[in-house]
Design a protein around this nucleic acid. Structure first.
Length: 464
DNA sequence: GCATGATCATGC
DNA sequence: GCATGATCATGC
């Protein structure tokens, strides 16, 4: 029945070595999996357990490239260098940050003396990079067992060129003047000459992007952002956000919340009980400690074979005394509904079966519904409370879009009203039939019925 | 089966 | 202790 509207578009199982976009699409198959899983599932390969080199195995086993030596980019025909590195969790919020500097090509101590920046070996090799970032997991035996989080093509941003050039020149100058001994990482800002390989006399240096540079100029440009949610939502932003959300959820469609939690190495106190909201945040790359502001995130549970969710959607309880002082234009309800929703749907795959993530849909309430039906119900509610009818507020049968119902600890949990004494706390709800329409899970006849109940509301086509 | 009222679970 | 998102219970 319900199609996973954001399910992964089929990603290719091979790539065209001349086409950077094709290579990137192929690489993105890795997102959400470990390299070991990808090698097994896609290539039938079983690398030895234990250590192993992520970078080398990625290059040779996954992409089937010959181990490349220096100067030319790994994907030579596409002019694209392959680079993998890791992210790690830090701080109480467990934010993800680059774990270490990203090593680039080795410094050619002799060659660099005669180079200029524009035709440097560094630029030739590293101007265009396909990055593959995995999340470091201290429990994993090998980097091959770490989940790959972020994959994308990247080119050195123009705005970074002056600084990189300055760093590069600085390194070259020191090398020419005083040799290797004069170098250390602290001398430059973005690009450093970092020691690589066994320590001791044999150690050589490679160019490396510093972690701050990676954090600021690499990750945000390859689809990684933290948080993912912007402040304002015109249509263009919303569309852009929708596709990013689609991409973020795609690897997890079809999994249960627990499987997603495991996959994301979600550390929750309650282990198996990991809350759906935390899973959603984790998928979006938002720290679970942080509130998701500016978007109404809601989990929808759908029973097998049902056309609409069992439950309506609640909002915070209102204070009757506040409510009667508000104008619609500046009301709490309007403010809430102006923000987009992210509906995350978990659907039973069989009667009483596992509940799997089936859809994640970003949606904004159409203005007509907001200023029409919702406003009508809001006006009715305010009028009732003002006039001493706070005990008879709009019910579900009054509108498929929006109604009022209790939202309290129990029936003794009350707020004062202007003229009816204390009454159980209540809030506005979005009707489950309306939400079903939004999600596009009502069939036509049901839509018509919901439309009749709600005026134009439920027949409003869902945003794509 | 659904609308309506009631309450739970979690986290701060 | 309360706000918030989510879910349960019951009677029509």
């Amino acid at each position: 029945m319900l199609q996973a509207s954001l399910s992964a578009e089929a990603l290719p199982d091979r790539y065209d070595p001349r086409d950077p976009a094709s290579i990137e699409r192929f690489a993105k198959r890795l997102i959400g999996r470990t390299l070991r899983e990808a090698l097994k599932e896609d290539k039938g390969l079983l690398p030895r357990p234990g250590k192993g080199s992520f970078g080398r195995d990625l290059e040779t086993l996954y992409f089937g490239l010959a181990a490349n030596n220096e100067s030319r980019p790994d994907f030579e025909l596409a002019g694209l260098e392959l680079k993998s590195s890791s992210l790690t969790h830090v701080g109480a919020n467990r934010r993800l940050v680059p774990k270490e500097r990203v090593f680039l090509s080795m410094i050619d101590y002799q060659g660099i003396a005669n180079e200029d920046w524009e035709d440097s070996a560094f630029l030739k090799k590293n101007r265009h990079i396909l990055f593959v970032f995995y999340v470091h997991d201290r429990d994993a035996d090998s980097p091959l067992d770490c989940v790959i989080k972020c994959v994308g093509r990247w080119s050195i941003p123009e705005e970074c060129m002056p600084e990189l050039e300055a760093d590069w020149r600085h390194i070259r100058r020191l090398l020419n003047a005083a040799g290797d001994g004069a170098l250390h990482g602290g001398l430059t800002n973005s690009l450093e000459a970092a020691k690589k390989g066994a320590k001791g006399a044999t150690a050589r240096r490679a160019f490396a992007f510093k972690t701050a540079f990676v954090k600021k100029y690499v990750l945000p440009r390859i689809g990684w952002s933290q948080p993912i949610l912007p402040e304002r939502y015109d249509d263009a932003t919303l569309d852009a956000l929708a596709s990013r959300i689609a991409a973020a959820f795609a690897p997890y469609i079809g999994m249960t919340a627990e499987e997603v939690a495991t996959r994301l190495r979600l550390e929750t106190s309650g282990a198996a009980k990991s809350h759906h909201a935390d899973v959603t945040k984790a998928i979006l790359g938002i720290d679970s400690d942080n509130a998701v502001e500016d978007v109404n995130v809601r989990t929808i549970r759908l029973e097998y074979g049902k056309a609409k969710p069992r439950e309506s959607i609640s909002f915070p309880a209102f204070r009757y005394m506040d409510l009667v002082e508000q104008d619609w234009e500046t009301s709490d309800l309007r403010a809430i509904l102006l923000k987009p929703f992210l509906f995350v749907v978990y659907e039973e795959e069989a009667p009483h079966g596992r509940r799997i993530l089936s859809t994640a849909r970003l949606w904004r309430m159409p203005n007509g519904d907001l200023e029409g039906e919702v406003r009508r119900i809001w006006d009715m509610t305010v009028t009732c409370v003002r006039n001493g009818h706070a005990d008879a507020l709009p019910r579900m049968s009054d509108s498929a879009v929006c109604h009022v119902r209790p939202h309290a600890r129990d029936s003794r949990d009350t707020f004062p009203t202007p003229r009816n004494g204390p009454l159980v706390k209540k809030c506005f709800w979005l009707g489950n039939a309306y939400v079903a329409g939004v999600l596009g899970i009502l069939d036509r006849s049901a839509s018509v019925q919901a439309g009749r109940l709600s005026g134009t509301a439920a027949s409003t086509p869902p945003r794509r």
